[in-house]
Design a protein around this nucleic acid. Structure first.
Lengths: 234, 234
DNA sequence: CGTTATGTTGACCTCCTTCAAAGGCTGTGG
DNA sequence: CCACAGCCTTTGAAGGAGGTCAACATAACG
């Protein structure tokens, strides 16, 4: 077990130059020789569904980049419940606030088994000073966080429950892996969409009856993108 | 009239070294001599309530920083209505996406008369390359955008209408000017909180009857912070 | 095989939306 | 100065969507 990652499993040192998501991840713009120097500081790790990468308010010492799987960022509400504020997938970076010396602003939890790289904040800070390419990459990642938050507001917190669920399914279908997109648990759906677990369940069950989606052990084996799309901008 | 700012009024060249919000705005960390060189490129402008700083999807050629007043950032929804995704006040920076060569991601509108500075993106890009202090400032501004978006999700898009309105009033009271905080129009409230204009009106009217707030020509002349606070984390 | 977590469904009731109309404030023109 | 238009706020009535609470089903697991 490593600090910061609770119950995560260490896989090995990062191999960014042969990484299949090279085009997506943080160091995609760096030249190979520059890259080699820093690889030994980056850990390639695995965490199973439900595992926590970091907790809200804990000291932010690393940035993370997702190699496979999904991660949710959640914040605690004053009344005790929690709200999911971001849904992250392959190529996304989390923990940028570490660069400012802040504590983490969210609790990051794996929605299914994830592979990710864990990068010490000092490594990124140093590269940021030296390399204008990474520098610009960081701007892009930050902007991406903003855009994703805006999406949660406009798509997932606006409109009827039915419409929100339809948008979420479309989102997962587009962003998801090719073979059978994952279907979120009803509770997670509720916390993303600002509705109750029961309502999420009712809508999904209704969609299944209407033949809009088919579910096979937690996976969405098929869904009618056209009709969902039509629903989503009502 | 200047490009990008519709019906805005030009006041003069920026005088960052004597700016009363110096501590807040983007260039607060720069040394004076460095500052002098760039001031002639920064315009100090005024826009009256309802005026538009920039439109969604228009070419992003400037960043903006607010010297006084309030600005809302809104996005169009597929069905035609709009949703406010951010509420900006003195010291906040908007239009950061310009640094990435994007178009603006929102429409920025003055909620009341605003003074702001308009900075060409090239100026910031150049300083960003030369000055590590500004560089770090930009990270901070981007993170602030993220935090503000998260706040819209957790505080303004979660809970009952009453609770949301209470949180919004508290937000305006804390962030607002000292002498009589402004009260938003009911339509704006609705678009921030994800409720209808009528519901916003009903809640405010009810608050007034219960003695939680007093309104005098668009200004909130008084409000019971304690009771609002108690309401807000229900 | 009981236990626990998760999904589904029903009944009821509350809160919010919708549609409609009336009241108030401001600015404009006669 | 008054009348009127236009905009925003307020209020009412009705209906519906979603929340709440509870029961039951199902699957995973020790």
């Amino acid at each position: 077990m490593k600090s910061n990652c609770i119950n995560s499993q260490w896989i090995g040192k990062a191999k960014c130059h042969v990484c299949e998501v090279r085009q997506l991840v943080l160091f995609s713009g760096l030249e190979s020789q520059k890259l080699d120097g820093i690889l030994q500081q980056i850990d390639n790790m695995h965490l199973q569904s439900g595992g926590v990468l970091y907790h809200h308010d804990s000291t932010a010492s690393h940035l993370f980049t997702i190699r496979s799987g999904f991660i949710k960022l959640a914040q605690q509400l004053p009344n005790g419940s929690q709200r999911i504020v971001r849904l992250l997938k392959v190529g996304d970076v989390l923990g940028l606030e570490a660069l400012l010396g802040d504590s983490y602003h969210h609790t990051a939890t794996a929605l299914r088994d994830v592979d990710f790289c864990r990068i010490p904040v000092e490594v990124v800070q140093q590269l940021d000073r030296e390399d204008p390419v990474l520098h610009q990459q960081l701007f892009k990642r930050w902007q991406r966080s903003v855009d994703q938050a805006d999406q949660i507001i406009t798509e997932f917190s606006t409109g009827s429950a039915e419409v929100r669920v339809a948008r979420l399914l479309l989102h997962m279908a587009c962003e998801g892996e090719k073979d059978g997109q994952m279907l979120l648990g009803r509770e997670d759906m509720g916390e993303i969409l600002g509705i109750t677990t029961e309502t999420a369940s009712r809508v999904i069950a209704d969609f299944k009856r209407r033949g809009l989606v088919r579910e096979e052990k937690g996976l969405c084996s098929w869904c009618d993108l056209d009709r969902l799309c039509a629903l989503s901008d009502t």
